[in-house]
């Protein structure tokens, strides 16, 4: 990345303009992928010979768990950029992504619990994978609470960045929890080195769902960032012009 691009990325106005061009495409991709993946996974994928149809929960559980972890790594990267270069937009990104990541963690935990009941015979066990995911949720809560508790924007940015960076140690713990400890949880479905242990008509829709969830995450985070940028820059001429443009006089009483 060249430095000019880096500085441009730090400009809220530039971000606001470029993101409005990315959003429609990303949103279309998200809808298309999520609908395709869901229909394929629910209707056309063959049933699992051991778990029956309850295995179809995989098509939302695994993507949600992916995003829960990727979302936290995103927070940590944004936190690093915000700490080192004091880039305001990185703090905007961190604050915007934290609630979305938390929701993904909730989804992963809840769908996992629903899947666990027919598969393991229990809704919850205090095993390494599940516990470390619960800790991830609390880390998200910590970042969100810290961001809201500190009114000074610069101090809040610093505190949240540090927490995001420290908490990232939990990510490899989650990843390797199924190898380091005895666990009920099955090992990873996708790895970079091996072919998935399931047939293509089972893992292809899963891959589509994972990519779809990434697009969805990007859309939601961009939307939240755009709103935050408007709020933070509300005194500038370009935001006033944008408000004029989107809210013409006759729409207001």
């Amino acid at each position: 990345m060249t430095w000019t691009l880096f500085h441009k990325l730090g400009s809220p106005k530039w971000f606001y303009e470029i993101s409005s061009r990315w959003l429609p495409g990303l949103a279309c991709a998200a809808v298309l992928l999520l609908v395709t993946g869901t229909v394929w996974g629910l209707v056309f994928a063959p049933e699992d010979y051991q778990q029956g149809n309850s295995f179809r929960i995989i098509y939302i559980h695994v993507p949600a768990a992916f995003l829960a972890q990727s979302g936290y790594i995103f927070l940590a990267v944004a936190g690093l950029i915000s700490l080192v270069w004091k880039m305001k937009l990185a703090d905007v990104a961190l604050q915007a992504a934290a609630p979305v990541g938390a929701w993904m963690t909730v989804l992963a935990l809840v769908t996992g619990s629903i899947w666990g009941k027919p598969t393991w015979g229990t809704w919850w066990v205090w095993d390494a994978r599940l516990t470390s995911m619960l800790i991830l949720l609390f880390l998200y809560f910590g970042v969100i609470a810290l961001g809201q508790a500190i009114t000074n924007r610069d101090s809040a940015a610093k505190a949240c960045s540090v927490l995001a960076l420290v908490g990232v140690v939990n990510i490899p713990i989650i990843k390797y929890s199924v190898e380091w400890w005895n666990t009920l949880h099955q090992p990873a479905t996708f790895t970079l080195t091996r072919k998935p242990a399931m047939p293509a008509e089972m893992w292809l829709p899963l891959l589509i769902m994972v990519v779809g969830f990434y697009c969805f995450f990007a859309v939601v985070v961009l939307m939240r960032m755009r709103l935050a940028v408007l709020q933070r820059e509300s005194r500038t001429a370009w935001v006033k012009a944008e408000i004029e443009r989107t809210m013409p006089k006759r729409t207001l009483r």
Binding site: T38, L42, G52, S54, H61, V100, W115, P118, V220
Partner: peptide, 24 residues
Amino acid sequence: AMGHHGAYVWSAYGLTLLVLTGNI
């Protein structure tokens, strides 16, 4: 019916739909 797993599968998908919609 999802082969006796209907309640699990549909509640998981329903909740996900709810959360995703809310987030948008």
